[in-house]
Amino acid sequence: MSGISASVIPIIMFSVALIILSSNKPHFDAFLVGAAEGAKTCAKLLPSLCALLVAIEMLFASGAIDVIEEYLSDFTEVVGIPSGMLPLILTRPVSGAASAATFSELLKEYGADSYTGLCASILMGSSDTVIYILSVYFSAAGVKRTRYAFAAAFIVMLFSVFFSAFLCRLFFGFA
């Protein structure tokens, strides 16, 4: 399994190189256009990341996280989710910048290869900003009543939380 994970990026780089060589179209120009776009996206991320990283760092430094964790650790132990994931679970549906800030803080606090760090990585990769996406899409469509949309999206999100912890135990052998 780790072989597959490790070979994904080499495969992509190799296929991209083949694509550039195999046709006369200016594919590399497309790369440059896309890369400039990526730089812009990242620059746009900085202001909100700045504010939210300050907030998250404050939350960890104030000791609030320790208190919350202590209260919830019995509960999280029973359901099998690491208690350190809680800030991520709360911020993930709301905003991409907030969850990125929380995620990097979690990695710093617990270590990227710890149980909490790996669970958080899988959850980050397999969930998205539910509230943000649903509101953007439905306001674009001009729809006011969203019926079961939020219920369904949050059930999926909750499933991802539990399933990421399960996969983490399965793949990385945490008890």
């Binding site: 399994m1 780790s2 597959i4 994970s5 490790a6 994904v8 990026i9 990097s104 990695l107 710093k108 270590g111 990227a112 290869d113 760090g117 790996l118 990585s121 899988i122 959850l123 990769g125 397999s126 991802s160 399933f163 990421s164 996969l167 983490c168 399965l170 793949f171 990385f172």
Partner: peptide
Amino acid sequence: AAGSADPYSIIVPVWICS
């Protein structure tokens, strides 16, 4: 950036979970 020994190890679990 956080100093993971194997940052790519999560790819397959992320696929399954997604």
